[in-house]
């Protein structure tokens, strides 16, 4: 390192950096803030220089984490990890910053300690991460096994333990299939269904009403005795929902309603002869 290099005012360099930077003295007052800092926090050198970091920007940096990390640098001279500051800032609104403070005593003429703090705005990045997480979740969502068994008749087997989220998702997908296929009878078969609680039962009742608004009818079948008992104990009433004991009877009901009867071939052959 040559002397010439040492003579460069570090603040000149800091000024040219595009990221918001500030330099603090050992009393944590601001000695210098660069243009990027002014721009990012919509402040002004004259407003911040000479003031405590905890006072500027309406106290936006007066948080436990900022205190702790700066004190760690002053007392032990160790540079902590960058940390995240997520809050509603005055003037600029909701932002997430990664804040990186580090001691910078060696590079200045001054002998007392100075701290350089770097601010990285990760708001957009965090937003993007959240959207990505959301999209991934969408892909992982289970599809609802609605099967068309006859013109305008669908069967929806209820399988496993339903939670509210799954029940909601199922209702949504079922309604879309109804709209797209013009189905008029939906047989919900509970033979493979696990235990249900009041919340799920409430969802199923809502689903039935929503199905009706689309112009179709729900037929519940295969409600197992233990589920039926829980429902009664929980005070859940199926109201005016059509029920049939077995899937077969449910299918029969829907077929009849569509104007079909299921008869043994023998019966027809006898007539034919």
């Amino acid at each position: 390192m040559t002397d010439k290099k040492m003579n460069v005012n570090p603040f000149e360099i800091i000024q040219t950096v595009n990221e918001p930077l500030i330099v603090l003295d050992e009393f944590l007052s601001i000695i210098f803030g660069n243009r990027a800092f002014d721009k990012t926090f919509q402040t002004n050198r004259s407003l911040i220089e000479g003031n405590s970091i905890f006072k500027i920007c309406e106290g936006a940096f007066d948080t436990r984490e900022v205190h702790e990390s700066l004190e760690a640098i002053l007392t032990c001279d160790v540079q902590g990890e960058g940390f995240q500051l997520e809050k509603e800032f005055p003037l600029i609104g909701y932002r997430i910053f990664i804040i990186n403070p580090r001691p910078m005593r060696r590079y200045t003429e001054a002998t007392e300690k100075q701290i350089l703090i770097r601010f990285e705005d990760v708001t957009e990045q965090k937003k993007a991460e959240k959207t990505l997480k959301l999209k991934t979740k969408e892909i992982l969502e289970l599809s609802t096994p609605v099967t068309k068994i006859w013109d305008e008749i669908l069967v929806l087997p209820l399988i496993g333990t339903l939670d509210s989220h799954r029940a909601n998702q199922m209702m949504e997908q079922l309604l879309e299939v109804i709209r797209d296929t013009g189905a008029r009878y939906i047989i919900m078969d509970g033979t493979g269904m696990g235990a249900i609680d009041t919340a799920v039962a409430a969802h199923m009742l809502k689903a039935t009403s929503a199905v009706k608004l689309l112009g179709a009818q729900v037929i519940m079948t295969g409600i197992r005795p233990d589920v039926a008992m829980t429902m009664v104990h929980l005070g859940i009433e199926l109201g005016d929902i059509m029920t049939r004991a077995t899937l077969q009877e449910g299918v029969q009901y829907a077929m009849n309603a569509r104007g079909y009867v299921i008869v043994p071939r023998q019966a027809l052959e006898l007539k034919g002869n």
Partner: peptide
């Protein structure tokens, strides 16, 4: 209207 990040 506001787009709130946390909780999203």
């Amino acid at each position: 209207l506001q787009d709130v990040l946390s909780p999203h």
